[in-house]
Every structure is written in C-alpha cells, then in structure tokens.
Design a binder for these strands. Structure first.
Lengths: 225, 225
DNA sequence: TAGATTGTTAATCGATTAACAATC
DNA sequence: TAGATTGTTAATCGATTAACAATC
C-alpha cells in the first residue's frame, strides 16, 4: 500500500476471481504448503498460469522469478486487497429463515466480517437472540448505526419490504448492501451493492441440465464455476 | 423446437443473462405490457439494445421488424429455453437453516421447479415436515430416487459431509446439483453443477466497498448486477 | 553459473457494440 | 408507401493466452 505500486486498471473479471484465489490459498496455507508456482496453482484451480500471473500483477509483483509465490505472503496480500482485516461490520435485516441461516453460518467470520446484530419488524423476534446475535426492531436501525459502526447491511426481507428498507439504509452511513431479494435496489451510488439472485442461479442450473440432456454424450464442457 | 432454427453457438455470457431476461419479461407481462422494442427493454435493463438483439437471436427470431417483441410470446420462449415447463423436480439435502430457508421460499415454484422433499441425517428431523415438505433419512435417498423422478439435488450440508453426499448423489440418476457448500464438488460430468459461493459474494462486496471508499468521489461506475 | 519461473509485452480469441439492409 | 425496428454482418473493444526477456 505504502510503496508506489503500478496502478494498473483492474477489470471486473479480475475482481470477481479474487475470492477464489483467497479460498485456494487459504487451503494451501492450511495444508502447510510454503510456496507455489503459477503453473502449479493453475493446475489446481483449473485455469491458465498466464491468467494467474496477469491477475496478480494488477496489484503488484507478489512472486519471485525462479521461485514462484510464497503462499503465506500471497494469501496475506490477497486478504489485504479484499479488505479482510478492515474489520468490516454487518447487520442482517430480516430475521427470517435466510437471516437465520446466514447468522448461524461461518460466512462472515471466515472472511473477516463481524456480524453484529439482526433487525426485524416482528415483535415476536425483537428482543430475542439468534445464534447469539441480538435482534432489534427495524425502527432502531438508524439510531443503532449512529452509535455503532455498521458497514454492511444484509438484506433478507421479502421483496415487498425492500423499498422501505432501502430508504432506511440510505439514511444511515452504511457502505454496502448484500441483497438477497429479487428486487433490484435503487440506492445512492455511494453504496456498493452485491446481488445474490438465487432464482437466477437455479434457472442457470435448469438450462445446463437441459443442454446436458440434449447432448447426452459429446465429451462435455465439464463443470462450471 | 420443431421448426429448424439456426443452431448458433450460445456463449456462457449469454446463458448467464437469460434468467435476467426472464425476470424482466415476467414483470412486464405482469404490468400488462404487450410489446416492447429492444431499445426500450435495453433502457429498462441497463444494457445495449444491440446486446439484447444479439442474445435473443442465438435462439431464433422472436421479434418482428418495425414492431418489436411481443412480451408474452418472448417470455414464453425464454421460459421454454430455460426449461420452465420441463417440470424439473428437486430435493434439498441438508435440512438445516439454509435448507429451511430455501424450502420456505418461492424460489423453486416461481421458476417451475417442483420441490419434493428434504433429506437429512438427524433423527430429530427425519419424519417431520418442513414448510409442508417431508424430511427423509439420507439413507433413503437412493431408493427415493428410484421411485420418484428427481432431477436436482440442492446441497445445503456442512462442508465435511459434502464428499459422502456427493457419492450418494452420483449413485442416483439425479441430473444436477445446486451446491451451497464451500467445497468444490467432484461428480461425473453427466451431472450439471451450479455453485453458490456466498462467501465469495461477500468478499466481492467488501472489495467494492473498499474501492468505493478510496475513490470517495469520481463519478463512480454505479451498481453491479 | 544454470535452471526456474516470474513480470510483461505481443498475439489471439471472444464478446460487445455499431451499422445497416431486410422487412414488417 | 413511409416509418419503425428487427436480424445480421462488420468494427471495436476487452479479456485471455502465448511467448519471452528479466531476474532470482
């Protein structure tokens, strides 16, 4: 960060691949692997070595000629790039089944994001706790965000509630929304949005099944990432 | 299907966009819109009209010069392409929080997929019902699939269970897996796989927040789909 | 030094956009 | 017929891959 690294443009394609590097490197680190060449990592991840070197070089030279990449160092760099260690904080809005599932999962903790609370409108849920996280009234969101730093809102409310919740979010200094609803959000551009359209994914699977069926056999294109 | 349509190669990029067309067209249909031009749809979806025409023409000419596209007809065609109406069936493997959430959601029904049951190993869950769907023992999966047609397995088990469950799935004639676990699956190529790496998505959001923060202001690139 | 492997430039490939002739 | 808008070809743009000089 401090030393003057070449500011190469980072394409959307590269950005999207970073978390996958993070996953593989974490695994390698766990396995006690000390160093890895782009060729070796490429074989593991089922991509080209060229792509790996190109991708990593968007952010500066993390390798060493004749040696390869130090796994621990590279993992650290990728983590840094992805904002692990920024200690981003999150709240889940919508304490339904999906909210439950996310709160109970290691999804946040595993990526350095600190889940702090859930918010809901149901008086049956408010005041209780879910997987150890307190559930507050949605009306308290604004006040909560003024007292506690909240970076990310995870939207797991029904589509019908999205518009009104969006407004509430826009009124806080929350920086990003992880949207699980079908509805397209309209938020000021200062807010980052990541949509998880589960229905779309299911349809992609159906389409793929259909295509796979039609082929029946033809040395298929294999799995998809 | 019957009439000889030009068999143009459909790129991965196009395939991935189809469910989004489905969503927008369904909405337009609901709104009572009868026809739409590529230009109008492009404005709505925030893409170029060229792209829409190119995309649709991979599957044949669904429009009419000087008129545009008949919304109902086009929606029907897209639905057909995506396999809505094939009446694909699904079972959820792993009756935890996420399994619950998916079973309770309209995700399947809204896309023409018929959810039939859940499977788990916990004796506390087996025999009960979740959102009206029966929960069976994982040991019964094989037999169940022999008696009932099952096209899709939704994998919501912990990572540690993925390998053994994968084997069980491979032993059936299930055609596709919707994988919510972190673990990369290894399955015979006859099976389609769609991975939902939620953690990756969360990291993409963090990265975006971080970038957004660094800019602060620069007429940003806006939301992401 | 010799061998290995990166960083980086150049070549290729694929996807998006622009343009326009076909046609409703 | 004139106007509109598609289907489709050609041009552009961007992303991936190949190649190799730099260098550890």
């Amino acid at each position: 960060m401090e030393n003057e690294e070449k500011k190469i443009y980072v394409s959307q394609a590269v950005k999207k691949r970073l978390p996958r590097y993070y996953r593989y490197l974490r695994q390698l680190l766990e396995d006690g692997k000390l160093r890895i060449s782009s060729l070796e990592l490429a074989a593991l991840m089922n991509v080209t070595a060229s792509q790996i070197r190109q991708d990593l070089n968007c952010f500066g030279g993390f390798g060493q000629q004749g040696y390869g990449y130090n796994v621990k160092y590279l993992f650290g760099k990728i983590s840094e790039i992805l904002g692990v260690g920024e200690r981003y904080t999150a709240v889940i809005i919508g304490a339904g089944n999906l909210g439950h599932a996310l709160a109970a999962s290691g999804t946040f903790k595993d990526r350095g994001v600190i889940l702090k609370a859930l918010f809901d409108i149901s008086s049956e849920k408010i005041g209780k706790s879910i997987s150890g996280f307190p559930v507050y009234s949605l009306d308290e969101l604004d006040e909560y965000c003024m007292n506690e730093r909240v970076d990310i809102a995870v939207l797991t409310v029904p589509g019908s509630a999205v518009a009104s919740v969006s407004e509430k979010i826009a009124a806080t200094d929350i920086k990003g929304v992880w949207n699980f609803s079908e509805v397209e959000l309209s938020l000021p551009p200062r807010l980052s949005v990541e949509n998880v359209h589960l229905g779309d994914k299911l349809m992609n699977l159906c389409y793929d099944i259909k295509s796979n069926q039609s082929e029946e056999e033809s040395a298929g294109a294999g799995q998809e990432e």
